[in-house]
Simulated scan of single mutants.
Amino acid sequence: MPDGADASEPLAALPDSAQRVALLLRECGHEKPVVMLPQTGKTSAEAAAGLGCSVAQIAKSILFRRRDDDAPVLVVASGVNRVDEEKVAQHVGDIARADAKFVREKTGYAIGGVCPIGHLTPPVTLIDSDLLQLDSLWAAAGHPHAVFNLSPQELIALTGAPVVDVALRA
């Protein structure tokens, strides 16, 4: 168990959005629990500090809006990477940054708690290829304090998303 994380709370003790994710993960056969961080996990650095893992192991969910049809575009990226919007656009078409209202309407989650799965409107999803270099990842579980552990292969299986290079390289 990571430093500071608490998996002993029953499902009912989780915030509603994290309960929804925990039930969805269970339905998908994912056996690892949703854990609550004592501090916020809104940023990759905050989440990593609370979990006692590297920032690279944080699978951050970044939502964009595709300009031509307003579809949500989800990029699940390594916490150390900045997303290259031009690379994303090569795969999905012209995109724009999503505001908090769009994120909440399309995903059902607040910024900082966007889970890679369980969105109200299924997004076009891409997975950062750099995540495949790691054995263990942590992703948001529907709430800024809620996370769950998974492998890169489990992330691919849960999302059905292609793995592509999305990182901004210097």
Rank of each mutant, 00 (worst) to 15 (best):
A22M: 04
G142H: 01
A157G: 08
H30C: 11
Y109T: 02
G41T: 08
P144F: 01
Q133A: 15
D84F: 14
A48C: 03
L120F: 05
G142P: 11
E105Q: 15
D94G: 08
F148T: 04
E105T: 13
D128H: 10
Q153T: 13
H143N: 12
A141I: 07
T125P: 06
V103Y: 08
T107Y: 00
G118I: 06
N149G: 02
D99P: 12
V21N: 01
D128C: 09
V35P: 00
P122Y: 01
C53Y: 09
V124K: 03
V103P: 09
Q153P: 01
Q90D: 14
A71G: 03
V73S: 11
A146D: 05
H30Q: 13
L37H: 07
A48Y: 01
D99G: 10
L37T: 11
I156Q: 14
L132Q: 14
I62Y: 01
M36V: 13
G118D: 01
R65N: 09
A141V: 00
D69F: 00
R104G: 04
Q133I: 00
V73I: 14
E154A: 14
E154N: 07
E154L: 04
P144A: 01
A139F: 02
L126A: 07
V55A: 03
V76T: 12
D94V: 14
G160I: 12
I111T: 10
P33K: 11
R97S: 14
G112T: 09
T121S: 09
V88G: 05
T40I: 02
D84H: 11
D69C: 08
L63T: 09
V73C: 12
S54G: 15
S61F: 00
D68P: 01
D69M: 02
G29W: 03
S136F: 05
P116S: 01
Q133G: 14
G79E: 13
